[in-house]
Design a protein around this nucleic acid. Structure first.
Length: 473
DNA sequence: AGGTGATTGCC
DNA sequence: GCAATCACC
């Protein structure tokens, strides 16, 4: 009897557990041929490439434990997929959907190709809690504000039935002459020392994603509601990169958190809402496919952004003279990640105080974050810069001194990433330029020499931003 | 998912 | 003198 074969195309679903496409395919075929295609046209940042390489290795290890091998390709997915069926006995081709405009267009074409070739092609949602096109408000439109969006989505996600699937995936090692090894993809630049540093901070892969979730549930979730805002404490889940690469399913996270009795409802609700923000971002991106490049409020096309490459560079490398901003930017560059509270602060500083275009921030974050994700990243930048769907401009000009004092009261976070400020007293840790000359000398930090003066005046630039907003409203 | 400046309320 | 509160940005 002929063995029935099907291909599962791995994309941002680099996991074997709770993978709807894999589960459905297992019920249709005897053995699954797992493939991954590196699509050079897909936007991917430097740090993401590093993560991807690690994650593919981990996935392949898990597949090899089940006697298969992840087949890797590089190039235009349409052409590669077309070539896979030549002289091969493959009847099924399944994948989990992606929701960014590039993937949607690309995958549509591939789906019609497979139809022509008479291959059974079915796709699944393994990436979001809900399909963006299914979520509508009472007037039949999509939501533009998070709170009502989440009230609705949380309810339907909660009341949905979740069947625990029993895994019995059988892989098959099928040979293709155009397949490659992971290292042939050249995802990491060996000359670049940058990713060596990231290495120390992260363990990519499905197995580690599960450990990370358990660690969050057991050690952090109890203090999440208040603790999540404190960059000086390690109380966030750090699941974002795993979610981006699909090393863990958002539905699984949602359900596990929901059923854990030891987490009180306030902490649960706050955390689930963060998972909700991720879906909300894709809800926006689905309905505003130009969102990565164009402001959602088009009056922002007239906004008087400044052109100042020097200030941009100082922001990127963490030399603005504002401690909480610099600490955040240095954390990002060093670890590939930044605490969310600080992301908002540095975003507000770039777009409001420096008056630099939010796209510049979007690009830098996309290149340097381990969790760089088209949806969350562009939605976040539009939100903080005030051109997003629900933004009101003056509402989000953060005062980085107050933010620092409130969320990093002892300057522990600032000192961790800015050694120059090591011996500055609590009183001045977020505004060191206000120290007397004697204090500067006695704490070994002369402002303007050991650590820069603020590159802009906070009060002045706040007012400048407000008048800039007036010119377009 | 804020900030500012003015006013009020309290010592 | 100062913290809490509010209206407005």
């Amino acid at each position: 009897m002929k063995t029935k074969l099907g291909i599962h195309w791995f994309r941002q679903d680099l996991r074997l557990s709770q993978n709807p496409s894999l589960e459905a395919l297992s019920n249709k075929v005897d053995q699954i041929v797992p493939i991954y295609i590196l699509d050079p046209k897909e936007r991917m940042g430097s740090v993401s490439k590093w993560w991807l390489e690690q994650s593919l290795k981990n996935l392949n290890d898990n597949i090899e434990r089940k006697n298969g091998k992840l087949k890797i390709f590089e190039g235009n997915p349409f052409d590669i997929i077309k070539s896979l069926f030549i002289n091969k006995n493959i009847e099924y081709f399944y994948w989990n959907r992606l929701y960014d405009p590039y993937s949607i267009t690309r995958d549509k074409k591939i789906k019609s190709l497979l139809k022509l070739e008479d291959i059974n092609c079915v796709t699944f949602n393994g990436y979001l809690l809900n399909e963006p096109w299914e979520i509508k408000n009472k007037s039949g439109s999509f939501f533009k504000v998070f709170t009502p969006y989440w009230r609705y989505c949380n309810e339907i996600t909660r009341s949905r039935k979740h069947n625990k699937k029993i895994q019995n995936i059988k892989f098959y090692n099928l040979n293709f002459k155009n397949s490659k090894n992971i290292q042939d993809l050249n995802l990491t630049n060996k000359k670049l020392k940058w990713t060596d540093k990231i290495n120390k901070h992260w363990l990519p892969g499905e197995n580690n994603a599960q450990l990370q979730l358990q660690k969050f549930i057991n050690q952090k979730a109890d203090n999440y509601s208040i603790g999540r805002d404190r960059p000086d404490k390690n109380l966030t889940s750090k699941l974002s990169p795993y979610l981006h690469f699909g090393e863990i399913s958002p539905i699984e996270i949602y359900n596990q958190i929901r059923v854990t009795k030891t987490i009180n409802s306030e902490n649960k609700d706050k955390f689930l809402a963060e998972i909700g923000w991720r879906d909300f971002s894709y809800n926006l991106l689905y309905h505003y496919p130009d969102m990565t490049k164009q402001p959602i409020q088009n009056k922002f096309n007239k906004f008087p952004w400044l052109n100042d490459n020097k200030n941009l560079k100082k922001w990127q490398k963490g030399f603005t003279g504002i401690p909480i901003v610099d600490a955040g930017m240095r954390q990002l560059y060093e670890t590939g990640w930044m605490h969310n509270r600080v992301r908002m602060i540095v975003g507000s500083f770039l777009t409001k105080n420096l008056l630099l275009h939010w796209k510049l921030g979007e690009q830098w974050f996309f290149d340097t974050l381990v969790d760089a994700d088209i949806g969350s990243n562009s939605a976040g930048w539009q939100w903080i810069s005030g051109c997003g769907a629900d933004a009101s401009p003056y509402f989000r000009i953060f005062n980085p001194i107050l933010q620092g004092q409130k969320f990093d009261p002892k300057g522990k976070y600032v000192k961790k990433y800015i050694p120059e400020l090591q011996n500055v007293t609590n009183k001045f840790i977020h505004n060191p330029w206000e120290m007397s000359e004697e204090s500067q000398i006695s704490c070994g930090c002369r402002i303007g020499k050991d650590y820069p003066n603020p590159i802009v005046d906070l009060k002045e630039t706040r007012n400048r931003a407000l008048s800039a907003f007036k010119t377009i409203s």
